[in-house]
Design a protein around this nucleic acid. Structure first.
Length: 329
DNA sequence: AATACCCGCAACCGCCACTCG
DNA sequence: GCGAGTGGCGGTTGCGGGTAT
């Protein structure tokens, strides 16, 4: 409407009310009622705007105003009504006799809102928050847990990292089937030169992801070859059944395979994700197995029946997976 | 003891809805 | 139907007291 604020008029006082002003306002309203708020200040001898008088009366001077701390019942009422009405302070105040909308609003902003946030509840929706900041304490706890696991498994991880740092061609040395599955057009089993393999974009990215992955996860838990089967099953796929067979990859040095252990008895490494269903997080360390296990996604464990387990999409871009792994996964 | 910082609350501001001429 | 006047509401500000450094 373009109306100027009533307090813009000259000689009108702003700021805190003095006891004398309060008394003038009380006396006038008790004798005459407030009538027109706009006309009241002049009639009451106050140099205030009508709006200021109304606010002072309704929020502070009104005789039925209740002072003091909010009771538990009042708090619960506010919380309940706010979950229904939102920031409709006057409507909420209508259910709390003696409390003003301004007082309830202030109490909400200074106490209840903060308390809900600390409890991880969104003060606007009254639902548990799901954004990353509200989950920060849990994330920090998980980070600490990860650090603990890494410390306890450090030696094993370092051993496995040695494997991961072997040249990719060495891992694929006698495995033309896997190479074909990985769509390596230039794969030549007898060729020990690096260049033909690394000329393939997939292997380049594979190597890069392998390094990235080793920074984030206990390395023995990851299947860097990108197939649907855990790494040890893929190593089995290379026919590395004896110590001699696996020397090329360093598996025996790591203690991941014994001299006599046939491929079928290798304990498969746990996969990262169980795509067969379930969404619980299960962290399992089993000293009976060749390596400790950390599995995200329930079930699985380390029993070798890992066909339903996949992890690559956890680390690779979708487009990359679509391009290179659709035949495998 | 002095200063900085934090917090609670009273008061202000701007907008909106309603009433009335 | 329109516009001015008014009351009411919600968001924001800033002061003053309390607390920490």
């Amino acid at each position: 409407m373009g109306r100027s604020p009533c307090c813009d008029e000259n000689n009108l006082k702003k700021g805190p009310w003095t006891p004398e002003e309060d008394q003038k306002l009380i006396d006038y309203i008790q004798n005459h009622g407030h009538g027109s708020w706009r006309a009241l200040p002049k009639l009451a001898g106050l140099k205030r705007c009508g709006k200021s008088c109304r606010l002072r009366w309704t929020n502070y001077l009104r005789p039925d105003i209740k002072r003091g701390k909010f009771s538990n019942e009042e708090e619960n009422t506010i919380l309940h009504l706010h979950s229904i009405l939102g920031n409709k302070w006057s409507a909420i105040a209508g259910h709390l006799p003696g409390r003003t909308d301004n007082e309830i609003k202030n109490y909400w902003n200074t106490h209840l809102k903060k308390r809900l946030i600390q409890m991880g509840i969104d003060p606007m929706t009254h639902q548990p928050k799901t954004d990353i900041f509200s989950c920060l304490p849990q994330l920090l706890a998980l980070a600490n847990l990860k650090e603990l696991l890494e410390q306890t498994q450090l030696s094993q991880n370092l051993q496995y990292l040695n494997l991961l740092q072997q040249p990719v061609p060495a891992l694929f040395a006698n495995n033309s089937e896997l190479a074909n599955a990985l769509n390596m057009t230039n794969f030549t089993p007898t060729n020990q030169e690096l260049s033909p393999y690394y000329s393939n974009n997939f292997l380049k990215e594979l190597d890069q992801k392998r390094v990235e992955m080793s920074n984030f996860f206990p390395v023995e838990n990851t299947s860097v070859l990108g197939g649907s089967q855990p790494l040890q099953q893929q190593v089995t796929f290379m026919n590395a059944q004896t110590k001699d067979d696996c020397e090329v990859s360093g598996l025996c040095e790591m203690g991941l395979v014994s001299d006599k252990s046939p491929s079928s008895t290798w304990n498969p490494l746990p996969s990262l994700m169980d795509t067969s269903g379930g969404n619980n997080i299960n962290i399992n360390t089993n000293s009976q197995e060749t390596s400790s296990t950390t599995s995200y996604g329930g079930g699985g464990g380390g029993d070798g029946g890992a066909a339903a387990y996949k992890w690559p999409e956890f680390l690779f871009e979708d487009s990359f997976l679509d391009e290179n792994l659709k035949e495998i996964c």
